[in-house]
Design a protein around this nucleic acid. Sequence first.
DNA 1: ATAGGCTGTCGAAGCGCTTCGACAGCGTCT
DNA 2: AGACGCTGTCGAAGCGCTTCGACAGCCTAT
Lengths: 338, 338
Amino acid sequence: MVTLAEVAQHAGVSASTVSYVLSGKRSISTTTRQRVERSIRELGYHPNAGARALASSKSNIIALMVPLRTDMYVPVMMEIAIAVATTARTHGYDVLLLTGEEGPDAVRRVTGSGLADAMILMDVELDDERLPLLRGTHQPSVLIGLPADITGLTCVDLDFKATGALCVEHLAMLGHRDIAVIGEAPAVYERHTGFAVRTLEGLRSRARELGVRLLHRPCEGGYDAMALTLARILDERPGTSGFVVQNESAIEPLLALLRQQGRAVPEDVSVVAVCPEQVATQASVRLTSVAIPAQEMGRHAVERLVAKLDGRGADEVVLISPELTVRASTGPAPSSTT
Amino acid sequence: MVTLAEVAQHAGVSASTVSYVLSGKRSISTTTRQRVERSIRELGYHPNAGARALASSKSNIIALMVPLRTDMYVPVMMEIAIAVATTARTHGYDVLLLTGEEGPDAVRRVTGSGLADAMILMDVELDDERLPLLRGTHQPSVLIGLPADITGLTCVDLDFKATGALCVEHLAMLGHRDIAVIGEAPAVYERHTGFAVRTLEGLRSRARELGVRLLHRPCEGGYDAMALTLARILDERPGTSGFVVQNESAIEPLLALLRQQGRAVPEDVSVVAVCPEQVATQASVRLTSVAIPAQEMGRHAVERLVAKLDGRGADEVVLISPELTVRASTGPAPSSTT
DNA sequence: ATAGGCTGTCGAAGCGCTTCGACAGCGTCT
DNA sequence: AGACGCTGTCGAAGCGCTTCGACAGCCTAT
C-alpha cells in the first residue's frame, strides 16, 4: 500500500507538501504540484481514509437512514437513496446506509464514533424519537419528511398538505361533490408518518372550504384489500365520483375493480393519484397525478447538508410545491352534466 | 468527545487495558472489566472509527455497489440492500452505498483508500469490467449475480437457468406446446445482464428437450409496450397458450390485456411469473410464480463475505434453487382437453 | 524451595494523515 | 540599502486507537 510519505520521497518533497497539493489549502508552485501529481499517478496512490478521518476529524461520509419496513413507496425510497448517493459523490462524500432497525441507537453510534460527518433521515414520524438526539448534537442533519416540531431542524419534503389540497381542488373544479380517499396502510397512519397525515390534512381542510364531502379509508395494497375497501366506500357513499389514491399498490387494483364494475374512468368516476411519475404514466389508464419528486428530494437534502457542513446555510424547511398533471383519469363529474 | 484515554483514567487502568476489554483479545479479570465497562457507560464513550481503522487497518465497513439505473426490479434491489445492511450489522459491519455510476473507479477508490474492508456487487454483467479489478485485489468480494467467468470469484444468485427450466416444465406438464416469454427491457439483454440471459438459456434448453415451442420477446414495462408486444406475439404464434413473464412492470399490463381480449386466465392461457413473492400474491390474479428470494440473497452475500474476512471460506458459487409455487394463473392447456 | 508457566496489566511504538509554526528566498517599498 | 511582506516549503506534533513485548504476581510441578 502506497503512503503519503512514499509519494513525497518519490517526488523529492516533504510529506506536508504532498498533503497540501492534495487539499489545496496552501499555495504550491506549479512545478512542484505537477511533480507531485505525477508521482501520485505513477505510484497509484490513494489516501488512506482512516488516517484522514483521524487527522482531520472529518470522514467525508454522510449517513443515510432508510426505513426498514417495505410497506410503502419502495421505489421512491430507492430513488431517493440513489439520488442521495449520486449527489453526495459530486460533493466528495460517500454514503453510509443505515436501516431504521437500530433506531435512535444508530444515531448515537454514528455521531459518537465520527463514522459520518452528517446524516439524512428518511421516513420521519411526526414525533420521531430520533429528533431529540439530532437537536442535541452538533452534527448537521437533514430530514426527508416533516415532523410536527421543526425547531432546530432542517427538512426537505414535498408539500403534502398542498398536495392534498390540490387533488381536492382539481376534483371539485370538475364538479365532483363526493370524494373518496384511498390511503396508505393503516399502520402508516398509526405510526403518524408525516406525509400521510399531512396529505390528509390538506385534503380535509380544502374539502371543507370547497364544501365537498370527503371519505378517507386506509388500505393495504393488493386486490383483495382494495376490493373490500372499495365495496365499503361505495356502500357508505354510493354517489362517490372522485377518488384520490395515495398508495402505489392500490392504484392498479382500484382501476381494475372500477372497470370490472362497469364504472368508466374518467366518464363515470375520476381518479387522482399521488405517486411517482412513472407509475402514473405506466398505469392502465394514464393517471392524472401529483408526482412525488424523489430525485429532487434526495438532491436537495444532500445540498442542504453540504451547505451546513461548509458553514453556509442554516436550519430551514424546504417544501417542494406539488404539481398536478392532468392526464386521462379525470373528467367532469357525471351529475354536473345532468 | 470522550477518548479511550479518558475512560482509562476514569477507570484507573491503562489505555491498552480498555482496548482489550473492548476487543476481548486478551483476558481481563472480571473486576477490571466491570470497572471499565462502567466507566464507558458513565462517560458515554464511543470508539472513534477513524482511529480504529487507522490502527487496525480494518474499517468494519462493507461496500455495496448498486446499479444506478432503475429500469428493473427496483423493489428487489431495495430488499437486497436492506437485507445486506441488516445482516452486516449483526456481524458488526456497516454498509457503504456505492452507485454503479463510477463503475470500476469506485472499486479502485474503495479498495485503495481502505474505506471498506470488502465489497458486494449487484447487477453483474456477464463480462463485467469490474471483475479484473476484483481478481487483482486481495480485498474479499461477493457478487450478487453470476458472470460468465467465475474463476477466483464468489457469487450468490438465484439459479436462473433452473428457474427458466422450471417455468417451461410446469407449462409443458400442463400440456402447453406454444410458450411465449415476456422478458426484461431490450437494454437489459443488450448489456448482457447475467440473470436475464441465464433465464433465457434455461427456458430455451428445457423447451428444446421437452419439444415445446418458445418465443422470447423483450418488453419495456407499461401498458402500451405490453400491448404492442402481445399483439406481435399472438400474430406470430396465434396458438400461444402459456406465458412466462420476467418483468415486474409487464405483469399487470399483460393480465389486463388478456382479460380485455376475452382470454381467461387460467382457462384459456396460463401465466407463470418470475418475480418477488409479494408481487405474485398481490396481482389481480394470484400468480403461479418462481419467487426471487431477495432477502436470502442479501443475507447469503454478507455471510460469505464475513466468512472470507474471517479467513474461513473460500471462493464458491452459491446458487439458490428456484421454487415454483402454483397459484391461480396456470392450468391445463385448452387443446389438451380437446 | 525453585523453576516454569499462567494470567492480567502496562508502556510505548506506531498506523498515515493534517496542520501549525517556522523560515528561506525573493520582490517591493521607502 | 534596509525593512517588510509574500510565497512556497519543511519539520514536527499530534489525531485516538491497536498491539507487541515486558513483566509482576501467583500457582503448580518437581
